[in-house]
Design a protein around this nucleic acid. Structure first.
Ligand SMILES: [Mn+2]
Ligand SMILES: [Mn+2]
Ligand SMILES: [Zn+2]
Ligand SMILES: [Zn+2]
Lengths: 145, 145
DNA sequence: ATTAAAACTGAAAATCAATTTCAATTAGGA
DNA sequence: TCCTAATTGAAATTGATTTTCAGTTTTAAT
């Protein structure tokens, strides 16, 4: 996590942007989150600690962090984006129950291998990917819908 | 495509819904589309042929068609959903260039095998999935961004 | 350390996809 | 044909995200 912060300033400067308190605070807060988060989650965390970071700044910073590879948009639920820290975490996919909204993470190195393979074949530069599987979880599939 | 329409009425009736002109027109129009489409595309197609199908009806019908397996939401771009007819098409993934917005389709049976495997392991009921790979396409990766 | 220009910020307004409301219309069983 | 519930189109609303803009901060050059 220290590693991430050390890397962030050069990343920002290299893009000709300013290294602001807000950008630093947002990244620091994010790396302290274990699990998924959305803009509202982040905003409330700042509010609780009386930090007056605005949603506008959050919305402006998240794409930068995605671009830098610090976080990833991992799925979309209830009409908004959810993110998580990329960190040392292996890329993984999400199973989302359309009934109870549970989100399960599935990690499978074989998937990453396939994705890499496509990258070479198509000669594109891979930045990130999302695999979202929708269905009914074990608990919900028995219920009559 | 005739097959799809033959199947649609029973599907609608089985759900206790009414088989309306609008629902039929929407499905007919959709099966005539080759490639991806979004709500605006569909709406404009109806407008051109002086059909007064509203966006509200389109928005109300698409989830039904997804549920029935006639179409799939395949990716999200520019803040809105894009669909395509499921038809006999093999499930596939999409590579999206974040610069020029090009969308490439990639079909790989090995991916489907993995997805099925997860379904059995986790004991959920698979309904659909999206795999979106973001990056820079061959043409764009050389440009200085 | 001062200064100045450009980038950035918070708050509010704007945008825009998607959903909801509601009065009028339609489907389809009795 | 009649009746009622479901559906529709248009308009209003919602809610996430983006944009605007006046005031603030960063940063490089004095
Ligand atoms: Mn995850
Ligand atoms: Mn496709
Ligand atoms: Zn569930
Ligand atoms: Zn491109």
């Amino acid at each position: 996590m220290e590693e991430i912060l050390r890397d962030f300033k050069p990343f920002i400067k290299k893009k000709g942007l300013k290294y602001t308190q807000e950008r630093e605070q947002i990244l620091k807060e994010i790396v302290s989150i274990k699990g998924h988060f959305d803009v509202e989650d982040l905003y409330l965390r700042f509010k609780e600690k009386n930090s007056k970071i605005s949603k506008a700044s959050i919305y402006r910073t998240l794409p930068l962090l995605v671009e830098g590879g610090y976080i990833q948009e991992v799925y979309r639920q209830d009409g908004h984006s959810h993110y998580e820290v990329t960190l040392t975490k292996t890329p993984h996919l999400h199973f989302i129950c359309i009934h109870c909204r549970e989100v399960q993470e599935i990690t499978d190195e074989r998937l990453n291998v396939l994705i890499k393979e496509y990258e070479e074949e198509r000669e594109y530069k891979l930045l990130t990917y999302h695999l979202e599987i929708f269905g009914l979880c074990k608990a919900c599939k028995g219920l009559k819908l």
